[in-house]
C-alpha cells in the first residue's frame, strides 16, 4: 500500500478507531446511560470490550497494509456478538462499511493534498474484502444457532435412543477410516 497513505492513516489512527467505535455503539440507541462506552471493565462490559479491542485490532492490521487475514479473529469476535443481538443482517454488518465513510472524512484533506486517490481506492478494496469475510462469519454463526438446537436435543435423547436400539454410535476408528477414502 502507498507509503504516504499509511503514514497519514497512522497519524489519524486513534481518531478513526474512536469514530468507528462511536458509530458501532450508535446502533444501540437505547443505551442512554452510555454503559457500553463508559464501563471499561472487560468482565462487567464484555460487549463494549469486545468492540473496542476488535476495532483496534482490525485497524492495526489494516494499517500494516499487508495481509488482512490476521484481523479475522477480531472481526469474528465482534460479529459473534452482533449475530445474536436484535439486528437484521444488514444492520449487524453495517459497521464494516461505515469504516469507508469514516476514513474518507478523516483523511479527505490529506488525500487531496497528496493526490493519493489510488491509495484510498486500494484501501477501500481491502474493506470490501473484509466485508465479504464478515458475511461468511455472520452466516456461520447464524447457522450455528440452529445447530446448537439440534445438538442439544441429541445430548438430551441420545442415551435413550441408544438404549432403544434406535441409534448407534459409529466408533471413532471406523469414522476416521471412512474419512481417509
Amino acid at each position: 500500500m502507498d507509503v504516504k497513505f499509511i503514514e497519514i492513516f497512522n497519524e489519524k489512527k486513534t481518531a478513526i478507531s474512536s469514530r468507528w467505535l462511536d458509530a458501532m455503539i450508535a446502533s444501540y440507541p437505547n443505551d442512554n446511560s452510555g454503559f457500553l462506552m463508559n464501563q471499561k471493565d472487560r468482565f462487567a462490559n464484555p460487549v463494549g470490550y469486545t468492540f473496542t479491542i476488535g476495532i483496534e485490532g482490525i485497524i492495526e492490521v489494516l494499517v500494516k497494509g499487508e495481509d488482512f487475514s490476521e484481523s479475522v479473529s477480531f472481526l469474528e469476535d465482534i460479529i459473534k456478538v452482533r449475530a445474536i443481538q436484535d439486528f437484521t443482517p444488514a444492520k449487524a454488518m453495517a459497521f464494516v462499511f461505515q469504516l469507508k465513510t469514516i476514513v474518507r472524512e478523516e483523511l479527505g484533506k490529506e488525500i487531496r493534498q497528496n493526490q493519493i486517490y489510488d491509495a484510498l481506492l486500494d484501501f477501500e478494496s481491502k474493506i470490501d474484502d473484509l466485508a465479504l469475510t464478515a458475511f461468511d462469519i455472520y452466516v456461520k454463526y447464524r447457522e450455528q444457532i440452529y445447530e446448537l438446537r439440534t445438538d442439544e436435543l441429541k445430548r438430551m435423547t441420545f442415551s435413550l435412543l441408544k438404549k432403544a436400539n434406535l441409534m448407534s454410535e459409529i466408533p471413532d476408528q471406523e469414522f476416521e477410516h471412512k474419512d481417509q477414502k
Binding site: 437505547n30 446511560s33 454503559f35
Partner: peptide, 12 residues
C-alpha cells in the same frame, strides 16, 4: 448494569 441480559443486549 449488573444483569447479564442487560449487559449483553443494552436493552434498558
Amino acid at each position: 448494569d449488573k444483569c447479564h441480559f442487560y449487559i449483553a443486549t443494552g436493552d434498558p
